[in-house]
């Protein structure tokens, strides 16, 4: 023992939860949806996801090396971004598209704004929207070996019928990771049980959307249409994994509910009145942009503020 002990400010103990553990849990929670997607769409989908992850991690590392910043790739946040973007790719897209989007997600949406914690928009969704705008033909083509034709939501929009059971299980066309409601919710339950996410955003999002859809779609609260809407179009993946992204959601409790309601309204507007029948990604990135405002107006009141004298 040296004569001089180390001193520091209180507290002197810390919880064992760290950023990288949280990110790793998110990756684990996305595995059911990933495995299902690979099983559903084939090995091409697996390569797409893996290459997108690799591109994200590499982009972050290279950016930090060039900018002479501390390497942060071990915190798994780039892996989460890559995985989410990979799961948002059409199953038959050429293998360069995902990695290309991954580099955009990391360099433009994340690192240029200051890296982890400083981005104003979910990087995976920002990149997805970038890809949809840049390569609309690739990004909206859901034909693959397993499925051909439109996604279930597009079919409904066109007045065709769909098989709800297949939609809930995920045996339909769509992006790699969005099709299986069961797999996504299973992963989300894992995160909820660990306390990493809670139901405030997903629940307010989904409930608002259902009410909006019931009121304005013309189908009323018909279980057939409601369940098809919930199971399709990446709503589950968006509500549980993208809207709950810590960095780009409001930090206050009331703010989170407001955020969920806004997402539900936007998704409803896009799906009911829009041309494409989908719209979760756009709803969430627009919601992301409103976060600073929401946080500011929902700041909590300090304990005993106003002095509740008896």
């Amino acid at each position: 023992m040296s004569d001089m002990m180390r001193v520091s400010s209180n507290p002197h103990i810390r919880s064992k939860v760290t950023t990288d553990k949280i990110m790793l849990c998110v990756v684990l929670a996305l595995l059911p949806a990933t495995i299902f997607g690979v099983w559903n769409f084939g090995l091409h989908a697996l390569w797409q996801v893996l290459l997108t992850i690799a591109a994200c991690v590499a982009a972050e590392a290279v950016y930090e090396l060039i900018m002479k910043k501390k390497l942060t790739v071990l915190d798994f946040s780039a892996v989460v971004t890559g995985l989410l973007l990979g799961l948002n790719m059409p199953p038959a897209a050429p293998l360069w598209v995902g990695p290309f989007g991954g580099v955009f997600a990391i360099v433009v949406v994340k690192m240029l704004f200051g890296g982890l914690g400083a981005n104003f928009m979910n990087p995976a969704l920002g990149a997805r929207c970038f890809l949809v705008i840049s390569f609309p033909a690739i990004m909206t083509n859901f034909n693959c070996d397993a499925y051909s034709g439109a996604t279930p939501l597009a079919q409904i929009k066109a007045g065709e019928t769909v098989n709800i059971f297949n939609m809930v299980m995920g045996r339909t066309g769509g992006t790699i990771g969005e099709t299986s409601m069961v797999a996504i919710v299973a992963g989300a339950c894992f995160l909820i049980l660990l306390g990493i996410i809670d139901l405030k955003i997903p629940a307010s999002y989904i409930v608002t959307f259902v009410i909006f859809y019931g009121l304005f779609s013309g189908h009323g609260f018909d279980p057939y249409y409601i369940s098809a809407q919930l199971a399709g179009g990446g709503l589950m993946l968006g509500a549980f994994f993208m809207a709950t992204d810590y960095v780009t959601r409001p930090v206050t409790k009331i703010g989170q509910i407001v955020f969920g309601i806004i997402l539900g309204l936007l998704t409803g507007i896009f799906r009911v009145f829009g041309a494409s029948g989908e719209g979760v990604s756009y709803a969430i990135i627009i919601g992301n942009l409103l976060v600073p405002l929401i946080t500011r107006f929902t700041a909590p009141k300090a304990f005993g503020e106003g002095g509740e004298r008896i």
Binding site: H12, R14, A118
Partner: peptide
């Protein structure tokens, strides 16, 4: 164990646990 200096501070990820 000195847990306070065991970990390097990393960027805030806005998780909201402190609130």
């Amino acid at each position: 164990k000195d847990e306070a200096s065991k970990y390097e501070p990393t960027p805030c990820i806005n998780c909201g646990m402190c609130l």
